[in-house]
Amino acid sequence: MEKLSQKQIHNLSDEDLMEHFQAGYEQAFNILVSRFKDRLHNFLYRYTHNHQDCEDLVQETFLRVYRSKHSYERIAKFSTWMYTIALNLAKSLYKKKQRMTTVTIHEDESDPDDRPMKIEDTNILQDDSLHEKMCMDELEKALMELSEDFREVVVLRDIQQLAYDEIAEITDIPMGTVKSRINRGRAQLQSLLKNHVYPETISA
């Protein structure tokens, strides 16, 4: 495989990086981790609401990517393939947790390792009003109240900003169903939060 400079490596597409990784270049994998670690945390946190579980799931996702590198075929986008792995792991954990206890978005006081997740924009929490913090908390609660079918597509679309065709592939459901569920998931969320005033939605 062609030798590349650092700059060239970092400019490669996800799929090109995966090909280099398949050819034995470990740094390509490290770049993929660096590109996707935050996005996966942001996605999987919506299933766990627990720092440690979320981090474990993200680690497990990358480990599976690492182990199964040769099962990836370029016909699929790398992100689609990886999100499918992540979603399957999240669903398994979610089901396991549901069997054990009710999932809570609050810190698990019995778990000394559980600590709040890092919030990307720390200024929001430090400077903005309590109202905004409450809105975010209520939103997270409402997301957890959505059925799994709705939550997964809404999170993939409105939090992860994935394209519809990619969501359909990751969830393995037809595009029309994806759209229908996103419509209904968003509407349900609005109903759950209708008593909370969101500045952006006042004029909507």
Binding site: K37, D38, E55, K118, I119, M136, I159, R186
Partner: peptide, 28 residues
């Protein structure tokens, strides 16, 4: 229904973003 769904979409802009811990890559 469309009004509700549109508002739901807008509310999701308020979702906080979660990112990896600084030592995530090291642990991996």
């Amino acid at each position: 229904f469309i009004r509700k769904s549109t508002q739901g979409k807008q509310m999701l802009r308020n979702a906080f973003r979660v990112r990896a811990a600084d030592d995530f890559e090291e642990k991996l």
